[in-house]
Design a binder for these strands. Structure first.
Length: 571
DNA sequence: GCCGTTTTCGGCCCGACTGTTTTCAGTCG
C-alpha cells in the first residue's frame, strides 16, 4: 500500500505536469515539483499533520500545505481533479514519449484533438501533423521511434544489469581517457536503473565518443556531440556518455551523479553565496572566475557542506543534515564482519557447504551462517535428520577455519498464522534463525501484520528475512502495517534483513529508514545460493546506505560476542 | 508557489543537443 506521503507527492507532481501542459507559470510548476520531492522524501507521515506541521517541510508553504490537507481529508486534491477534467489523461501520457514534451503534447491536442498515444501514431501515419508549427519530418520520425521504444522495452533494469554494463563500458573507454567512471542513479545505488551515465575526463573527446558509439551492443545513436553522446543498447537501455576536461572532474562527477533534486539544492546554495555551480566547476557569479572543480570534496566544502555520500543524494533531508554537520557515518561493505543468510545444495543452493564456506573465508568474514530452508517449504525436502547431519558437518569444517566462526542456522517459513517450522526445543539447537514469508502473499493487511508480529515474538526467530517478499518487477510487496511490524521488531530484539539479491533489495530503502527511526536493528545478508552471489553484498550495502544506516544499526557489523548477546534475545 | 545575514518583492539551477528556425524553442537530464 502506498504511503500517504507518496500519494500526496504524486498528486502534486501531477498538478505540475498538468500545469506544464496548460502553459502555467514555469516557476509555479517548479515549486510544485520541488514540494512533491520534499513530501515524498520527508521522513514523517503527513497524514496526521496540521497546517503548521506541513509548512515545516521545506518547499511547502501555505498554498501547498492546504492542498495536502485537502488530500488528507478527501484522498485527492481539488485542483488536480479540475485540471484532469480539462486535460484528458491521454494527453499527459503523450509526454511519456521521448522527445515529446508538454508543449508538443498540447499542440497536437489543441490543433488535432489527439489525446492518446495510438491516436498520435495514427495521425502521423496519415500525414495529419504536416504543417503543424514546429513539427517537421524529423520530429515525426522521432515521435514514431519514441513510441516504438516505449512499446518494446524502455523499462528500468535491475541494478546488477546496469552495473555489469557500466563496468564493461568503463573498461572499454578507460584506456582512452584520463579518468572514467559511472555516475547517475547507478552511483546512487537506486534499486532499478532507467539509464546508465558514464563520465570521462579528457582533453580529446573525439576518440572516446567514437569508441563509445562503436561498442558492439550499440543499436542506436540518439545524440552525439563533442561533450555528450547518447546511445541505446540491444536490450533497450540508454547510456549517456559525458566527456569533460580533466580539471572539471569533481564538479562534473558531482553534477552527473545527481539526483536532480539534490543538484538543484546545491546550486541554490551556490547562488545564495554569490556563486554559480555547473558541471565545469564552482564559479564566482560576478567575475565568472573559477573557484574549485577538481574534486567533489572541494565543491561541497566551498558550499559549506561536508562531502555527501552518493547514496544519500536524493533531496531527502541530506542537505539539511549536511548543513548541520549531522550526516550519518554510513555502513560500508568493509564494516561487515559476517553474513547471516546463505544456502547450500542441501536445499536450493547450487554450491556445496565446503564451497560456500570457502567463499565466505575469501570475503574475509569473521563469522558466517549457513541457513538452509526448513521443512515446511516442502519442495526443499528438508528433514530433521538432514539438518542435524549438516550441523555435524559444519562443526567438523570449523577446524579448517580458525579465523572464521561458522554458525549453523536455518531459514524458517513464517506460516499464515505466524508460526514457524519446528518446536522450541529443536529451534534452540540453531545458532541463528532467519524467518521469512514464502507463501500466502495475499493476506489482508491485518492478517499479515499479525503474522509478522507473532514471528517477531518467537524467542528463537532472530532475523526476519526479505520482509516485504517482493520481487522487483515480478511480485508486489506484501501488505502490512509496517510501522506496527517495526515496533514489534524493535521491542522483541528481532533484526530485519536487508537482502542483497538484486531483484529483492528487501527491506527497501524507504522502509529501512522508517524502521530505523523506530529503533529496529538490521542484518545485511547475501541470501547467497551460489558462489557468485557473494558479490551481491554491495547492492545490499547500497540499499542500507540509502536507508541511512550506520554500522551500529547493523548487527552483522558487530563483533561476534555482541552479536551472540543479541541472538539470545530476551531470554 | 516559495522564500529571505543581499530581498516581504522579485528573484527562482544550468547546460547540451536537436530540429526548425534564421536567432531560438523544446526537450532532456
Amino acid at each position: 500500500m502506498a504511503r500517504a506521503n507518496d500519494e500526496a507527492a504524486d498528486l502534486i507532481q501531477e498538478l505540475a505536469d498538468l500545469l506544464s501542459i496548460t502553459g502555467g507559470d514555469g516557476f509555479k510548476i517548479r515549486a510544485y515539483e520541488k514540494a512533491a520531492r520534499a513530501i515524498a522524501g520527508h521522513p514523517d507521515d503527513i497524514s496526521g499533520m496540521d497546517l503548521a506541521g506541513l509548512r515545516k517541510i521545506p518547499a511547502v508553504g501555505e498554498a501547498i500545505a492546504k492542498k495536502v490537507l485537502d488530500y488528507n481529508a478527501t484522498g485527492t486534491i481539488r485542483q488536480v481533479e479540475d485540471l484532469r477534467a480539462q486535460i484528458p489523461a491521454g494527453v499527459r501520457a503523450l509526454t511519456a514519449i521521448p522527445t515529446l514534451g508538454p508543449k508538443k503534447a498540447l499542440a497536437v491536442y489543441e490543433e488535432l484533438g489527439i489525446s492518446s498515444v495510438p491516436e498520435l501514431a495514427e495521425a502521423i501515419k496519415e500525414g495529419r501533423l504536416r504543417g503543424l508549427k514546429g513539427f517537421g519530418a524529423k520530429t515525426e520520425d522521432n515521435i514514431l521511434h519514441g513510441i516504438d521504444l516505449m512499446r518494446q522495452a524502455g523499462e528500468r533494469v535491475l541494478i546488477d544489469v546496469a552495473a555489469d554494463l557500466a563496468e564493461e563500458i568503463v573498461a572499454a573507454l578507460s584506456p582512452l581517457a584520463e579518468r572514467c567512471t559511472h555516475a547517475g542513479s547507478l552511483r546512487r545505488m537506486r534499486e532499478t536503473i532507467g539509464d546508465v551515465d558514464i563520465l570521462a575526463a579528457s582533453t580529446e573527446p573525439r576518440p572516446i565518443m567514437e569508441a563509445f558509439t562503436a561498442l558492439p551492443f550499440v543499436t542506436d545513436v540518439i545524440a552525439s556531440g563533442d561533450k555528450k553522446t547518447s546511445i541505446r543498447t540491444t536490450r533497450g537501455l540508454q547510456v549517456d556518455l559525458r566527456v569533460v576536461p580533466p580539471e572539471s572532474w569533481g564538479a562534473a562527477l558531482q553534477y552527473f551523479t545527481g539526483s536532480q533534486g539534490h543538484n538543484i539544492r546545491t546550486r541554490e546554495i551556490a547562488v545564495r553565496a554569490g556563486l554559480k555551480l555547473s558541471e565545469y566547476g564552482l564559479f564566482s557569479a560576478e567575475s565568472g572566475e573559477l573557484i574549485v572543480s577538481e574534486t567533489e570534496e572541494e565543491v561541497y566544502e566551498r558550499l559549506g557542506l561536508p562531502w555527501v555520500p552518493p547514496t544519500l543524494r536524493e533531496d531527502g533531508g541530506e542537505i539539511e543534515a549536511a548543513l548541520k554537520n549531522e550526516l550519518p557515518r554510513l555502513v560500508t561493505a568493509q564494516d561487515l564482519r559476517g553474513d547471516l543468510h546463505s544456502h547450500t545444495d542441501l536445499t536450493d543452493g547450487v554450491a556445496t557447504l565446503e564451497e560456500m564456506v570457502a567463499a565466505a573465508a575469501e570475503r574475509g568474514l569473521e563469522y558466517y551462517a549457513i541457513t538452509d530452508h526448513a521443512p515446511n517449504l516442502f519442495m526443499q525436502r528438508m528433514t530433521d535428520e538432514k539438518m542435524l547431519a549438516q550441523r555435524e558437518q559444519v562443526r567438523e569444517l570449523q577446524a579448517k577455519y580458525p579465523d572464521l566462526t561458522l554458525l549453523h542456522g536455518t531459514e524458517l517459513n513464517i506460516d499464515p498464522d505466524g508460526e514457524v517450522d519446528w518446536d522450541a526445543d529443536f529451534l534452540a539447537g540453531f545458532d541463528v534463525c532467519v524467518a521469512s514469508v514464502h507463501s500466502a502473499f495475499t493476506q489482508s493487511q491485518a492478517e499479515m501484520t499479525r503474522r509478522f508480529v507473532r514471528a517477531c515474538e518467537n524467542p528463537h526467530v532472530h532475523v526476519i528475512g526479505h520482509p516485504t517478499a517482493r520481487l522487483i518487477g515480478k511480485r508486489s510487496p506484501v501488505d502490512a502495517d509496517w510501522d506496527e511490524v517495526f515496533r514489534a521488531a524493535a521491542r522483541t530484539g528481532t533484526a530485519l534483513e536487508v537482502d542483497s539479491f538484486p531483484d529483492r533489495l528487501d527491506l527497501p530503502a524507504d522502509l529501512i529508514r522508517r524502521a530505523r527511526r523506530l529503533g529496529v536493528k538490521f542484518s545485511i545478508d547475501t541470501d547467497a545460493h551460489a558462489l557468485g552471489h557473494h558479490r551481491n553484498i554491495r547492492y545490499g550495502v547500497g540499499t542500507a546506505q540509502r536507508g541511512w544506516l550506520t554500522p551500529d544499526d547493523v548487527i552483522n557489523t558487530w563483533p561476534l560476542d555482541r552479536l551472540r548477546a543479541f541472538l539470545r534475545k530476551r531470554s
